[in-house]
């Protein structure tokens, strides 16, 4: 086989892997109900997707503002260099995520309730 043909096959199979990975990792079984805000690897907050609201996360001068509306979550403003996180799409399905690399902040969605029980 010619080498240039091999390059094309490689390109196609890589795209196939990407498509397969995407199809399998998508959680279509349940609607997301909560957004988890991870800071430094810890689940720092859990925001209900059912209620429109805006939350400001500040840690050592790092600020990210998270907006919840219409069952979606996104970062509407942040003081990270570049502000890449504010350009990521609003997420609405379990398994989707938004990440702010400089602030080590990440938002993921989950389809399970916030808690098993409540102490009061």
């Amino acid at each position: 086989m010619k080498r240039s043909a091999r390059d094309i096959i490689l390109l196609i199979s890589m795209l196939a892997i990407a498509a397969g990975w995407y199809a399998l990792s998508r959680d279509t079984s349940a609607n997301a109900v909560g957004a988890i805000v991870w800071i430094d690897g810890f689940r720092s907050a859990r925001l209900s997707l059912e209620q429109a609201d805006e939350f400001t996360f500040e840690r050592g001068g790092d600020i990210n503002v998270v907006r919840i509306e219409n069952g979606t979550a996104r970062i509407v403003s942040a003081n990270c260099p570049g502000g890449d996180c504010t350009r990521q799409r609003a997420i609405s399905r379990a398994g989707e995520l938004i990440v702010c690399v400089p602030h080590k902040l990440m938002i993921t969605l989950e389809s399970v309730p916030a808690f098993d029980t409540v102490a009061r």
Binding site: F42, A45, L47, S48, Q51, I68
Partner: peptide, 14 residues
Amino acid sequence: IGSAIPFELTGDGL
């Protein structure tokens, strides 16, 4: 709290 026992804030309390 936050280390040995993880605690995450919820929207209601924020």
